[in-house]
């Protein structure tokens, strides 16, 4: 996407500079009208038209994957609840009753549904390397599906300005291998 964008940018700028510098040719009114239509239809309609279609061809499948549709296997994904506070994260595991602060553990290699809420102002839940962001709005609960393909540590950060300590509202995310996750759960839940 960035590459295509760069090419379009360079193309348009090159055209502009060339139009500025090229020796002016005298064209008759008929010829001028033809050139006009060529530019306006070609550059004004077709170019952005194709760009949009190309973008959609890429974007629609990507968007579909992000929809929290029920998974094909029929088994509901693990649910974790996260509540935003000024300026910390409260993490609940409804299945086991575990409660954590500023730390989120999840199994790697499987989808996880995170239900987000807020206790005070609007925050935004974001783990850049796992998924897009979803706002935590007081009075509402939102759902985001994420999946860590590899075990390891990730960094989450509040993405909506939420007051003076916004910059320090960081979430430590640990993705475990399924077996290690089960062990961790046992340890915490038991």
């Amino acid at each position: 996407m960035l590459t295509v964008g760069t090419i379009v940018l360079i193309g348009v700028v090159a055209l502009w500079l060339h139009a500025l510098r090229r020796p002016s040719a005298m064209v008759g009114p008929v010829e001028a009208k033809r050139i006009t239509l060529l530019w306006l239809v070609g550059g004004g309609l077709l170019l952005p038209g194709f760009a949009i279609i190309a973008l959609l061809a890429f974007g629609i499948p990507a968007g579909h994957r992000m929809l929290p549709l029920p998974p094909a296997s029929g088994e509901a994904p693990l649910r974790i609840e996260v509540i935003g506070h000024q300026w910390w994260w409260e993490v609940h595991y409804p299945d086991t009753g575990v409660v954590l602060a500023d730390e989120l553990h999840l199994p790697a290699g499987q989808p996880v549904d995170v239900v987000v809420r807020s206790a005070d102002v609007i925050h935004s839940f974001w783990i850049p390397r796992l998924a897009g962001k979803i706002d935590m709005v007081p009075g509402r609960s939102n759902l985001i599906r994420l999946q860590a393909d590899e075990a390891g540590e990730y960094r989450g950060q509040c993405a909506e300005y939420c007051g003076v300590s916004h910059a320090f509202m960081v979430l430590r995310v640990v993705a475990h291998e399924p077996a290690a996750y089960a062990a961790w759960q046992q340890e915490r839940g038991g």
């Binding site: 139009a19 090229r22 530019w39 306006l40 550059g43 004004g44 952005p48 760009a51 949009i52 973008l55």
Partner: peptide, 24 residues
């Protein structure tokens, strides 16, 4: 949001065509 790019593109190419056909 994507659609709104088209009228902007029309203006940009109208400007380029104006330079193209003019004696800048």
């Amino acid at each position: 949001s994507m659609l709104v790019a088209i009228p902007t593109a029309i203006q940009v190419f109208s400007w380029i065509a104006t330079l193209w056909l003019g004696r800048p």
